[in-house]
Write a protein that binds this DNA or RNA. Structure first.
Length: 103
DNA sequence: GGGGTGACCCAGT
DNA sequence: TACTGGGCCACCC
């Protein structure tokens, strides 16, 4: 799988996250590991930073539920609008979603 | 080719 | 609760 295809796969998966649910960078990397053989939370993070526009990037948070630096306000607002449970500074990880669950 | 960096993660202190 | 160290991997000097 070429790097640009990996990017496509990440964005595709992020688009499938249902409103009101979230996924961590690590979970995304994990879910794609089967299909691509590669898994790196850091890589997913950098992909979202560079190509995240155009997909519901606010549904992807870090493992602690923290929102992306510099976009906390924006992400919080969108999550609240979707009814995503919030806890403390970010999202409530009890709302985390997995691809298996959505099929 | 070598080295620093980052929207990360986990275990240990 | 907060910090640290090691692992991770594409990108950019």
């Amino acid at each position: 799988m070429r790097p640009d295809e990996y990017v496509e796969a990440v964005l595709e998966l992020v688009e499938r996250i249902p409103p009101g649910r979230v996924m961590s960078y690590g979970a995304v990397a994990d879910a794609l590991a089967d299909r691509s053989g590669r898994a790196s939370a850091r890589l997913v993070g950098s992909i979202m930073a560079r190509h995240g526009g155009g997909v519901p990037w606010h549904r992807v948070v870090n493992a602690a539920g923290r929102l992306p630096p510099g976009h906390e306000r924006e992400a919080r607002e969108r999550l609240r609008a979707e009814g995503t449970p919030l806890r403390g500074p970010g999202a409530d990880m009890r709302a985390s979603w997995s691809p298996e669950e959505g099929m």
